[in-house]
Design a binder for these strands. Structure first.
Lengths: 343, 343
DNA sequence: CTTGACTGCTAATGCGTATTAGCAGCTAAT
DNA sequence: ATTAGCTGCTAATACGCATTAGCAGTCAAG
């Protein structure tokens, strides 16, 4: 059984007593061409195809047509390791859904070689198998991004990206406005003394949060604490928060918020009674923590879906560069309450 | 920018002042052929390739060679929805690792059309783009499996599968012996009256557990309760367990074990003091529960890795059908204790 | 009876690569 | 001086399909 050669249109043609071209036309000729093949001939060919179980070789088909109906998915970090899985899975879910709806398959680009940095253009990378690709990851390589932008290979980034030798097509989350809305909510509850825990630079996603935050600090509001370092212990951070007299604390990372909350509870402080806490973004495994932090939702699945749709547009219609930011709706949570009257 | 034609070996050849054939040979000629191209020429060609960023079109390559270095991954359920993600992610991690090590890329086959059942042989047979494929999912379609076995397309199943018109190549977990080992451990601790909570039929994975379980019930041991229904409430199940006088309860599903444990605790019963509990298999998010159940480990990543390696063997060396069952090591846990002396 | 349009097909070509056969030019051995 | 063998390449072809140009035959209109 194994070793049987694949049937070709030639074989079918011989069996049906026609030419290979006719078989191809019967299979998927334009209506105008089909009109010129009489019913009888068509049926004869179809019959042979049915009895032999012939299926056209997709490779040859792509070869002839130039398109694959394959989308590449390039991740700057391996996609499935458990720590990363939580991050990538929702995106991939959206991507898979939309790809399926548009009848595309997905090619996961595994990067080149273990240990080496994952580079889109790394040698031997078979990026070009796909008709276009989605690029995701926390940190992008600027040089590669530039090369993509400058090149003619269709791609879409997931997450906002600064221009890199030209505008980058992307679908991202509107972290700036998501953050701003939370700050305004806090201010409406009387919070004036605000703290920001987390970095404010480097990746776009971080910059956007900081922009939204600092842009919303106006009037009587005041930034009384900004802890930038990551490695700092929760107790130290808590000390700093208490010392600063902050009434609302904004965390970039859920993990930091969780640790600080635990430290606070241990010290007999309660959130949001003693101070409020807000997390700037939703996190996949948030339910693992027992506290529901006030935050904003990151529509990861929708980002995946829309990025995929955009990529297909760029591939099929050579659509111009688009940049989409999806709204990040606030999540109520239990950690933002009215500000205490200062003593 | 968009619309620039892809580079071909022809273009490279013109730029380097050689023929297309030479470019191809430089790229991947046999050593004997390469020996006849002087260093100088090779470097000139390589230089052009480097500066232009040329990458061979894999489709054309496959066309000519019949190999693409692409592995298809077919899942009978969408791979990323959150409930499934926990199930598939570890397999995919292993698959991705090994594929990367073997320098293959992964093609996720999205199945045909939303809502329709996912069928390997659905229209277009896109499957054939890959050199071979891995098939995973809880439930397989027997007819499709048979068609795969009978055909000459290389594939490997993840999880043991019964013969389907011939032996199925697979890498699975040895649930039968994993289960048997746990039963024997319980018996060594004096447990004679055993309960089995969960189905015993349908999918191979279920059958294997039941086989391992019932095969280990010998001598003085006795199956005093078998709850097959899934929908049953935890309280009902707990009642049945208590009534049966079982001293050790084996659960197919972690979820059932968790619910019964909660119900027991509420009733003032404690595990493993009042009765022991064993879960037949490891679960990804087990840490979410606060109880560490005694169970066996399912080496999901390793299964993914070995299945991938096996598939590559079948593709490249036309290796014969292999069937591998990986050992499922016991997990100590805290829910299996010595049997109480019966009153 | 010529022209034109239509019918039912086929030959030929291109897609981009891998691979094989072989050609010219040279050197060393007979 | 002929032959054999080596070097450094290239021309040609195959892979399986889609597609276009066009051929031979028929038929109706002018």
């Amino acid at each position: 059984m194994a070793g049987t050669k694949r049937l070709t249109q030639h074989d079918i043609a011989k069996l049906a007593g026609v030419s290979q071209a006719t078989v191809s036309l019967v299979l998927n000729g334009a209506p105008t061409a089909l009109a010129r093949i009489p019913q009888e001939t068509r049926e004869r060919v179809q019959q042979v195809i049915r009895t032999t179980g012939y299926v056209a070789d997709p490779i040859a088909r792509r070869m002839a047509k130039g398109l694959n109906r394959i989308l590449g998915v390039f991740t700057y970090e391996p996609a499935f390791p458990s720590e990363q899985a939580d991050f990538f899975a929702p995106f991939l879910l959206g991507i898979e859904e939309e790809a399926q709806a548009q009848n595309y398959d997905l090619l996961l680009l595994t990067g080149a070689g273990v240990g080496r940095e994952r580079k889109i253009f790394a040698d031997g990378n078979r990026l070009r198998i796909a008709d276009g690709c989605l690029v995701l990851g926390r940190e992008f390589d600027r040089a590669e991004l530039k090369r993509l932008v400058t090149g003619d290979y269709p791609f879409v980034a997931i997450g906002r990206r600064e221009d890199a030798g030209g505008p980058v097509p992307y679908v991202g989350g509107d972290y700036a406005n998501g953050t701003r809305a939370l700050v305004e909510k806090a201010r409406a509850l009387g919070h004036d003394r605000l703290a920001f825990i987390g970095p404010s630079g480097s990746a776009e996603s971080i910059v956007d949060r900081w922009r939204g935050f600092s842009g919303a600090i106006t009037g009587s509001a005041e930034l009384v604490l900004h802890v930038d370092e990551v490695g700092r212990s929760a107790v130290d951070t808590l000390d700093a928060i208490v010392r600063s007299g902050a009434s609302a604390v904004f965390f970039v990372e859920l993990a930091d918020a969780v640790r600080v909350e635990a430290a606070a509870r241990e010290r007999g402080l309660s959130i949001p009674n003693d101070f409020s806490a807000v997390v700037l973004g939703s996190h996949v495994r948030a339910e693992r923590s027992h506290v529901q932090f006030t935050s904003f939702n990151i529509p990861r699945e929708e980002m995946g879906r829309q990025a995929t749709a955009m990529l297909v547009r760029r591939i099929e219609d050579a659509a111009p560069v688009e940049q989409i930011l999806l709204t990040c709706e606030p999540v109520e949570g239990q950690t933002l309450g009215p500000a205490k009257k200062r003593t």
